[in-house]
Design a protein around this nucleic acid. Structure first.
Lengths: 368, 368
DNA sequence: CTGTTAGCGCGTTCAC
DNA sequence: GTGAACGCGCTAACAG
């Protein structure tokens, strides 16, 4: 009811309670000894004044902010949304708030984000980094050496000795594509692959480009190759999309693949957007799933079983991802000066069989 | 490379540069006058020491934190994710960070969230509140009177004089349902309605329950009634779902409606999850869209045009919602002591015609 | 223009 | 047990 009043400080509470500043601080801050009587006087005084502790002042004094920074590429993406949810929940339970920043997949913005988080003196940072190799991780190492623990989430950086929690991208893809291959598919499209100016003609071009790609996507491409290599089957670089990573671009590329002479009989889609683009292309070409083309999507989604036919997908343990990363980070924050051995956790995925995968028709894909 | 060193302070920079503390503060803080030469000395000294300003200390000194709190029900929900993204982007451009909190649709957690944000001395709060009436808004009013501006986003509170940015929920629903009615549908299911123990038998029960429901959902139900009232058509309370607000529960309820004698020929779904549940039920009953049932979904989504048939939906201006709310809040923060006239913005939606809506078959719905 | 000084709100040591 | 006093890192008012 008191409008626009400055927030009461701890000394004001002390005065109102008729005690020393320190006594008020001790009771309100839950530390040190204070007699039953004084404690009550302070508490009721605080209540009456509507005292709210100033966490900022406390932080500059203690050096800890009880806040962890979370840096992701795109909060609007349900994928990130899910594990961010899980992160905030876990941290909250442990008494930490989260400062959320989005980078739009730009390294520059990620560096800015780190700067900001350091300025705000967060106790630790969780980041789904856009960095593709060690040379791009100066900001991460700098944070670490400033005493701010960092753990990588969802995306790793090769050759960087730092805690990380990721999905088994390469293995997951390898197994999924292997299943397709085992069913007799020999031409499976890989959506999406690394971005290249022109369509790739050599596998080498793709692996090269993948090394400059987002880590997860790169790993998945390698898994795709693994599956082919396991059976010593020939790889057609033309089956790997190399355009923009948008549903629209994918739609075009897949349409192109589907109209070609030797069209793919199956697709592995590494993202929801890729899946949507592929589905549109299949519809555009008047082809039918799974009769004409089989499809596996990485990343499960509620609508996967609402489309016709229900889609076979791979579920990623998103909440576990967030929870694991958060608790690892908080452990680092709490047990400071811990064994510097980086912990690298890899979480497993789960293939959900639905109806979008069958063996290819005998007619097509006879000779390869 | 220097490991675990305490972060250098402004005085250390000053000493290293051979100037006074204030001069260093002025150049580093971008305020006041300072000669070209000294400025350079300070800057290079800062660079060498790897100085990073302590935003916390700055905040306790200035009283402003350049941070706004964002409180939503569920970050994992793409709906919230989208406008949270938009909020963080807008705020960032204006120089504000965002502290994101999720409440799981619980008022208690929302109150906790407010407490935390006040303690962290955020400059303002954006909240998609779970409060359903004025009596549940003590925390909001308290924040306001503490001098922290609050703007409601996506969800309003009747009789509460406070800035808000929302969608035209009632009008939007009214128009959409009207279109269904105009096509000749007389029995359109409304998914999801307010939660009631048993299936509702009287319209009064529903309006009563809706007043204790989430604001958006309540408004939509009223819009549904409006549409019927406009044509003075009779309302069947049995066509309004009253179960849990989950896809599974909806699936059951809709299946039940569909198996009844006088089954609905169309559905209006107020949420993506409601839409998914409804689609599953329709599939379970081996009915076809739009031949047997027409469907309109509130909230557009990328997968709406990937299902068979492509779904007619209503697009909500999510980025505009976030942007508008953020800039309104920031304006309140900046022009403090402004005219206290609350600004209540209502954003319009857009109906996207696709293929899930047609006139009902003559056979059914002859007599009502 | 520059440096000195006094806060900001709170944590914490150290005599009483 | 309690309270005075100092420090955290920074801003800002004030003299020079």
């Amino acid at each position: 009811l008191s409008s626009q009043r400055r927030a009461p400080t701890i000394s004001e509470v002390a005065r109102a309670a008729g005690v020393g500043r320190a006594t008020a601080a001790r009771t309100l801050g839950q530390y040190g000894y204070v007699s039953e009587e004084l404690r009550n006087r302070v508490i009721s005084a605080a209540q009456e004044l509507g005292y709210q502790p100033n966490a900022l002042a406390r932080s500059v004094s203690t050096g800890r902010s009880a806040t962890i920074g979370v840096v992701v590429a795109d909060i609007a993406n349900p994928f990130f949304g899910s594990f961010v949810q899980s992160i905030t929940e876990s941290s909250h339970e442990a008494g930490f708030s989260t400062l959320l920043l989005s980078t739009n997949e730009h390294l520059v913005e990620e560096i800015d984000a780190f700067q900001l988080l350091i300025n705000k003196r967060v106790d630790g940072i969780l980041v789904a980094t856009s960095a593709q190799n060690v040379t791009e991780t100066r900001h991460i190492q700098q944070a670490q050496s400033s005493g701010i623990p960092v753990v990588l989430i969802d995306r790793q950086v090769p050759d960087l000795d730092i805690d990380s929690v990721v999905i088994s991208n390469r293995e997951t893809t390898r197994e999924a594509v292997s299943q397709l291959l085992a069913l007799g598919h020999t031409r499976v499209g890989f959506i999406w692959g690394p971005k290249i100016k022109h369509r790739a003609r050599y596998r080498r071009e793709l692996t090269e480009a993948a090394s400059h790609d987002i880590w997860t996507d790169g790993q998945r491409l390698l898994g795709y190759f693994d599956a082919y290599d396991d059976l010593t089957l020939p790889i057609d670089p033309g089956l790997v999309s190399t355009g923009e990573k948008t549903a629209e671009s994918v739609q075009q590329e897949v349409t192109h693949m589907l109209k070609a002479d030797n069209r793919p009989s199956a697709f592995f889609c590494t993202e929801l957007e890729a899946l949507i683009g592929t589905l549109r292309a299949v519809a555009d070409c008047k082809l039918s799933i799974p009769r004409d083309v089989s499809i596996i999507g990485l990343d499960d989604t509620p609508w996967a079983e609402v489309v016709e036919p229900p889609l076979t997908t791979i579920e990623q343990p998103l909440v576990e991802l967030g929870r694991t990363a958060a608790s690892l980070l908080i452990q680092r924050i709490t047990n400071t000066g811990q064994a510097p051995e980086p912990v690298k956790t890899v979480l497993q995925t789960r293939l959900i069989h639905r109806d979008s995968v069958v063996a290819p028709h005998q007619s097509r894909e006879s000779r390869v």
